[in-house]
Design a protein around this nucleic acid. Structure first.
Length: 563
RNA sequence: GCGCCCGUAGCUCAGUUGGAUAGAGCGCGUGCCUCCGGAGCACGAGGUCGCAGGUUCGAAUCCUGCCGGGCGCACCA
């Protein structure tokens, strides 16, 4: 690849002149007069070499082996940029690489097969998933997918808090609805779950066991109700996620931490560190030792552990299961737990930054300029299923991934429901389908476009070369997105690439510029342009696949849909 | 009060870890329609990067202090 050749040639020069060799960034300048590729190495070397960047750039340019780098010319510009002009044919040669790699184009091996766990969603089984969980599901799945594409062995995990007070509240809420269904006058507890879905759970219980627990308030009865409710709601969440095309390798139950003795084991291990003390009847851990704001209670004065303890125990199992790298995807409202969990793990001897966190901000759904807040089923916010049944799974997944996690997400239903290029999902999908339509028109199978078959040097138009350069950047984009746990980088790239493909395609409209038509009368040009169309199709398809979104070979028009 | 995140065009947002004249989509304005898919295309206007200092060859980006918005600060989870 052109980039690699230039990098190698640059590194050789840097060694010659005794400069430190770090990562050399090559980027495509916005202004075409600045060449095909440019680098700022000379600027970054100004300090370590204590010479003027311009001077360093001149020396590098002089010593650079142009042939080895595959460039026609190199220029020093501005404060000390090196601008490369690639040899004719070199630019388009990346198309052969793309055709050759096909489904693997964009993959890399920076992870070298190492194990990484991504934990996400992890909602309590106390009700249907809402749109916030949806963002986390799409985002977590995207982060996991990016790691997979960059050579990591990814494990997707869901942690179920199936123990504790929230579950007790659910049990009492279901119990109240159950008795209501049997004609007893009883209100759902004030701090219980008020949504309609609790009635469904109670009704199912009635048809399963009749009135057996109507007046039975024993522990056995409550256990049975709890188990029934948790099972039913877990099944609903699993369906919601499965239909959203999000799947997990493992579901880890909080209750198993207790039954397996891991909570007690963690207390014992922490006590051995000497960082545990008793205060006012409670057991504390000195987490301030590791930068936490204040020390934390592990066991309350009533003997019950706080949530902090099983959380540390749980993350300890991640380490013990061999995951030296773990990424937790969570809502930003949980950021307060980050320091304390890390502190607890550090006390046990785990590394300081363990685990990593991707915290995402809240989601607001807007339609006609007003926020949509209500869901009959939950009595509060819109559910994930209500959203994606309206706009479709593809659109929902894309919208959830197209903003950086740090930013609040405004989910605009008006745009999501639009079926034109104004909707970024459709814009990318249309571009993909359009490439496929070229092959239908040409009566050529996609798979018949072979690597090395076309004379790519014939692609000389500015629009063509611009498009080719973008396609060549895909692997770098995926790597950067993976490094920053940011699927939105891929979305931006796909939208820009789709736009460039559209410009190229429309410029070749036979009625306007027959000399730019893909299906040219000139057989050589036609083959070269089909190779380009095929490469565009591959990149768009791979990008969409990575994000978990369909890449349709044809789009159904609305007027066709109706007939 | 303390901590974390955010503040970039009328709106929604990018900005590759400090680089060249700050970008995209929508909206707005002008011009193109019988096309290899008009659900389009081309061009244009629009910015004191919240404010004020600082660091250096260079700052939307890093540091400090303010202003504004969101979220957290339990022996809840």
């Amino acid at each position: 690849m052109a980039n690699d050749a230039i990098r190698a040639a640059l590194e050789a020069v840097l060694e010659e002149i005794g400069a430190p060799v770090g990562t050399i960034t090559l980027e495509r300048p916005r202004d075409p007069s600045h060449g095909d590729l440019a680098t700022n190495v000379a600027l970054t070397l100004a300090k370590p070499l204590s010479r003027s960047p311009r001077q360093i750039a001149e020396e590098i340019a002089q010593r650079l082996d142009l042939d080895a780098a595959g460039v026609d010319a190199v220029q020093v510009a501005g404060p000390g940029f090196l601008n490369f002009h690639l040899a004719t044919g070199t630019v388009a040669s990346v198309l052969d690489d793309i055709l050759d790699a096909d489904e693997d184009w964009g993959r890399s091996d920076v992870g070298q097969g190492r194990a990484v766990m991504v934990e996400f969603v992890s909602a309590n089984p106390t009700g249907p998933l809402h749109v916030g969980h949806g963002r986390q599901a799409a985002l977590g799945d995207g982060v996991a997918s990016l790691l997979d594409w960059t050579g990591w062995a990814v494990h997707r995990e869901y942690y179920y808090n199936d123990a504790g007070r929230q579950i007790d509240q659910l049990t009492f809420s279901v119990r109240a609805r159950y008795r209501q269904a049997l004609g007893v006058e009883e209100a759902v507890p004030e701090d219980g779950y008020q949504g309609e879905y609790v009635k469904d759970v109670a009704d199912a219980l009635v048809s399963e066991i009749g009135d057996r627990f109507k007046d039975d308030d024993s522990e056995e009865a409550n256990d049975a109700i709890r188990i029934h409710a948790v099972r039913m709601l877990r099944e609903e969440q699993d369906r919601d996620l499965s239909d959203f095309r999000v799947h997990f390798d493992e579901y880890y139950l909080e209750s198993s931490l207790y039954s397996g003795g891991r909570v007690d084991g963690t207390i014992e291990a922490l006590k051995e560190t000497g960082l545990v003390y008793e205060h006012e009847g409670a057991t504390w851990l000195k987490t301030t030792e590791f930068g936490d704001q204040k020390d934390r209670v592990m066991v309350r004065s009533n003997g019950q552990p706080t949530y902090f303890l099983p959380d540390v125990a749980y993350h300890r199992t991640k380490w013990e299961r061999g995951f030296e790298r773990v990424i937790n995807v969570q809502g930003a409202d949980h950021h307060g737990t980050v320091d304390r969990v890390r502190a607890g793990l550090q006390a046990l001897g785990l590394p300081a930054g363990y685990p990593e966190y991707v915290l995402h901000q809240m989601v607001r759904v807007v339609q006609d300029g007003a926020e949509v807040k209500f869901s009959k089923r939950t009595g509060s916010g819109m559910t994930l299923r209500e959203l994606y049944e309206q706009v479709g799974v593809n659109v929902a997944r894309y919208f959830f991934q197209m903003r950086k996690p740090d930013a609040h997400l405004l989910f605009d239903l008006d745009v999501a429901l639009d079926h034109s290029d104004k909707n970024p999902v459709y814009k990318v999908q249309y571009a993909h389908a359009r490439m496929c339509s070229i092959f239908r028109k040409a009566e050529v199978e996609l798979s018949d476009v072979q690597c090395g078959a076309a004379d790519l040097g014939l692609l000389t138009h500015e629009l063509e070369l611009d498009l080719v350069k973008r396609l060549g950047e895909f692997a770098d984009v995926v790597e950067r997105a993976a490094r920053d746990s940011s699927p939105h980088v891929v979305c931006d790239y796909l939208e820009q690439t789709a736009g460039a493909a559209n410009s190229w395609y429309h410029a070749g409209n036979p009625s306007r510029n027959p000399e730019l038509a893909v299906l040219s009368d000139d057989a050589g040009l036609r083959d070269a342009r089909l190779a380009l169309a095929r490469a565009v199709q591959i990149v768009l398809r791979n990008g969409l696949t990575l994000l978990g979104i369909d890449a349709p070979v044809r789009m159904v028009r609305e007027d066709e849909q109706e007939s």
